[in-house]
């Protein structure tokens, strides 16, 4: 399957077939966000619970702490609510 490079290059094919896989990554759902999760790295114990529980799959594991992909995070707050060490806090987005 061909892989699209940007939204403008999406090709619409005859019959409305889906032309490539995982094209939804071109849709940046981060624009929906009202509250933004912010990680406090010193409190993070790398337990991976937020990685398991994120319904938008925005949590990346790095060497020091977790990293949140704000391109796709919708700001549901599950990571902050489930974090056992309260290392994630929700902050209101600035306009």
């Amino acid at each position: 399957m061909q892989e699209p490079k940007s939204a403008s290059k999406l090709e619409y094919v005859r019959g409305g077939a889906i032309h490539a896989c995982a094209t939804s990554t071109l849709m940046k759902t981060g624009a929906w966000r009202v509250f933004k999760p912010v990680v406090e790295a010193e409190k993070c114990k790398q337990c991976k619970l937020c990685y398991w529980y994120c319904p938008d799959f925005c949590i990346q594991m790095t060497e020091e702490a977790i990293k949140i992909d704000y391109d796709y995070c919708k700001g549901c707050g599950i990571c902050a609510a489930e974090c056992p060490t309260h290392a994630i806090v929700m902050e209101r987005e600035e306009d």
Binding site: S6, T25, T29, I78
Partner: peptide, 21 residues
Amino acid sequence: NGERGANKEALFVSGHRACHG
């Protein structure tokens, strides 16, 4: 392009339009 981290190996990736949570 535009795909990284948790989405690299996944079979169901980010950018879907489900509600928050």
